[in-house]
Design a protein around this nucleic acid. Structure first.
Lengths: 192, 192
DNA sequence: TAAAACTGATAACATATGTTATCGTCATTG
DNA sequence: CAATGACGATAACATATGTTATCAGTTTTA
């Protein structure tokens, strides 16, 4: 099997049963894309045509608010999906941009591909359901964290969960992710 | 058709095609519950066994954070679903409590019912997918609002979207929903 | 390799927001 | 109907967080 597809096969197999024949047919439609550091693969306002699966590297999902401020929404590490799922599903202009923070390899799943999968794969609808549920869980947890945890607690949880995040992501992006200013994060770190 | 099921039939029909036979069989499993004002139908820590469909009345979804503060997560008005969907799907202790703010009638869909529907209904999996997607959209919008809009802007949007909300929901619950103190909301209102 | 851009720390100051307490009004309840 | 509690406004004060500017070290780029 194409080595780039090994991990995405693992992940999809963890959601649904997919036999070899189905997989060969399905995965033949994947496209692979190499993205250079800082390159943008989705621009806010464009319709998001693909779900990206990060094979290696690192993506940043962010948007620009009314005041022109960049807000980082989340980071996509290896072996996770990344997209503006609402734009993707509804075919409406995306609220987010997605940018590579490192040279990154992604596997692209188009809308047509996912929707064909609903019919072609014996568990295609189930895959769609589980992907949506998974995405929902992430956002549910995120909202809950915002309501219940102070910025410094969320920072500590983040660095505990991803110990090497500080080596890979500039601190001002992390501050933006926490929805606080970079100055404030610097203060919090050095006074706790 | 049982009048209490009319609206939920409309809502489900807007998601999937469901023929008469399927509907009669499916809806026969609904239970209906009357909840008194202030009564709690889901307690934080319990496993959430049902999705609630609000026929009339009003629910408040909230949780108590580490400091013992009540945080209001969202309100469920008529003809919408309400649940702790993560607890419901994963059968883990719920993070939320759900309370009636008025005398309220709900239709209950159990986990078994929804999952049986995945097999029994010809579009059962699709229904599950669309419900998860819908829930995801709500949370996506919520997170985005938190990142991009100031409390007073979110307050104005809320009252514009639900003009009678102030007559139905005490202001300190709305402040809690906005994740600010009731004192601060009072100030913001009277100084803009 | 030199210039430019990026990054993170820090200080000084301004603003936003929380906390506590008080008060008057109104609704609920025994 | 009286007592109690819920509700919202307000004041005074404390804390959290943002903004702007500066600086030094590092990385990127021409």
């Amino acid at each position: 099997m194409n080595n780039q597809f090994k991990k995405i096969h693992q992940v999809i197999s963890s959601y649904i049963e997919i036999n070899n024949e189905e997989w060969i047919s399905y995965s033949s439609k994947f496209r692979v894309k190499e993205i250079r550091k800082r390159e943008i693969i989705l621009s806010q306002g464009d319709i998001c045509r693909d779900v990206f699966f990060v094979v290696n590297g690192l993506l940043r999902v962010f948007f620009v608010d009314n005041d022109g401020e960049e807000k980082t929404f989340y980071f996509s590490f290896e072996n996770t999906f990344s997209t503006d799922y609402e734009s993707f599903l509804k075919k409406i202009p995306s609220s987010y941009s997605i940018q590579a923070l490192e040279d990154t390899t992604v596997v692209l799943m188009s809308f047509e591909m996912l929707h064909d999968g609903y019919k072609i794969l014996s568990n295609g609808e189930k895959l769609g359901r589980l992907l949506a549920e998974e995405y929902f869980f992430i956002f549910n947890d995120k909202v809950q964290a915002i309501y219940t945890q102070s910025p410094i607690v969320r920072y500590n949880n983040l660095t505990r969960k991803f110990p090497n995040i500080l080596q890979r992501i500039p601190q001002h992006y992390i501050a933006s992710y926490l929805n606080i200013s970079s100055v404030h994060l610097s203060r919090l770190k050095n006074s706790q």
